[in-house]
């Protein structure tokens, strides 16, 4: 299986390639991609140089252009597609049907992957995207169990890529406007979710409150570690129950499921985290590459290698196990 690794900066891309990434994905430094964070992503010349360098080392580079173009401003997204082709990208990762149609029409030779932000969750829609836009690979949404992924692979020739490590959307990706409801910043339109610009920590009376857009969604004792206030992983009250009603502050760690995912016919394993540091990317990529190599060689998998890198110290296998639902 192919390891698809995140790179938020040219330095992270170099580190990922050095650590054994088969493929790296990244985005341009603007609102065309779903990790539009300050100080992150690639200028055009950085992208061109980084791709050339990755190719020298036999690694592929995918460019995510996976937000939904703004009405009246599609030219910005069209330019990103054209520049991805010009920079020598191995594929682009798109979510918006209009943009897919544009790319298929104007740059038919540039390979197209369907972003997780399109949340294509069954074989019929995946085959439809392939027929309409020539999509060669789909990044599956994090709502599917491993048997469902196997069933999809049995019904499609489109390659499947699944997330195995890092941040975890609880909602169907690209179909959530919790963040824009509370902060005005939207994953689909602005490429950000629960943005740091709207986070506020307040310490009083021996406790630390974390607020997002004025809503208090975490509370810990002073001095305790406070998780980042991502909306779907906040603490809320419904009736007489208070807790993490949507999801605990966990992140995805499906390393133990790698053999099952291989058996399910998955082509590529994706690691989330373009916002992560160079050392984090190096470590995660090295570990996953070792695990994949062991798997392909029929050797036992190294166990629990990544647990300590997980956000909030707790890992979940998410929807891959059906009981998650």
């Amino acid at each position: 299986m192919e390891i698809v690794c995140p790179a938020g900066t040219p330095a992270a891309l170099r580190a990922a390639v050095k650590a054994g990434a088969h493929t790296v994905y990244c985005g341009f430094a603007d609102e065309t991609n779903a990790r539009n964070f300050p100080g992150l992503n690639f200028e055009r010349d950085e992208m061109r140089e980084s791709i050339a360098r990755a190719h020298e080392h036999g690694a592929k580079v995918l460019i995510a252009i996976n937000t939904y173009p703004r009405a009246g401003a599609e030219a910005l997204w069209h330019r990103a597609v054209a520049d991805a082709a010009g920079c020598g990208a191995d594929a682009i990762i798109l979510a918006d049907p209009g943009l897919l149609a544009f790319a298929a029409r104007e740059f038919p030779d540039l390979r197209r992957h369907l972003s997780v932000q399109a949340a294509a969750a069954n074989a019929d829609i995946i085959n439809f995207y392939a027929a309409e836009f020539g999509v060669k690979r789909v990044v599956l949404p994090r709502v599917l169990s491993v048997p469902e992924i196997a069933a999809i692979n049995a019904e499609t020739d489109v390659e499947t890529e699944v997330f195995v490590f890092g941040g975890l959307c609880v909602m169907a990706e690209g179909r959530c406007s919790l963040s824009s409801y509370a902060t005005g910043k939207s994953p689909n339109m602005n490429g950000v979710c629960s943005p740091a610009s709207h986070v506020e920590y307040r310490e009083e009376a021996g406790r630390l409150d974390a607020r997002l857009g004025g809503y208090t969604i975490h509370r810990v004792g002073a001095g305790e570690p406070a998780p980042y206030p991502t909306l779907c992983k906040g603490c809320f009250t419904a009736g007489d129950k208070t807790g993490h009603l949507f999801e605990d502050p966990v992140s995805l760690n499906a390393e133990a499921l790698m053999p099952a995912l291989q058996k399910a016919g998955v082509t590529a394993l994706k690691i989330e985290g373009r916002q992560r540091s160079v050392s984090y990317v190096s470590q995660v990529v090295r570990n996953f590459r070792a695990a994949v190599d062991a798997l392909e060689a029929g050797l036992p998998m190294p166990e629990g290698m990544l647990a300590r890198l997980s956000e909030g110290q707790a890992g979940t296998t998410g929807a891959y196990k059906k009981t998650w639902r």
């Binding site: 703004r70 918006d96 209009g98 690209g174 689909n188």
Partner: peptide, 25 residues
């Protein structure tokens, strides 16, 4: 997710005659 003219036109080509826009627009 109908966020832009490109997607609207693609849906119109397919036979869409009415679109209720995503509420966040």
């Amino acid at each position: 997710n109908v966020y832009n003219e490109g997607t609207l036109n693609w849906l119109a080509d397919k036979g869409a005659r009415r679109i209720c826009l995503p509420p966040e627009l």
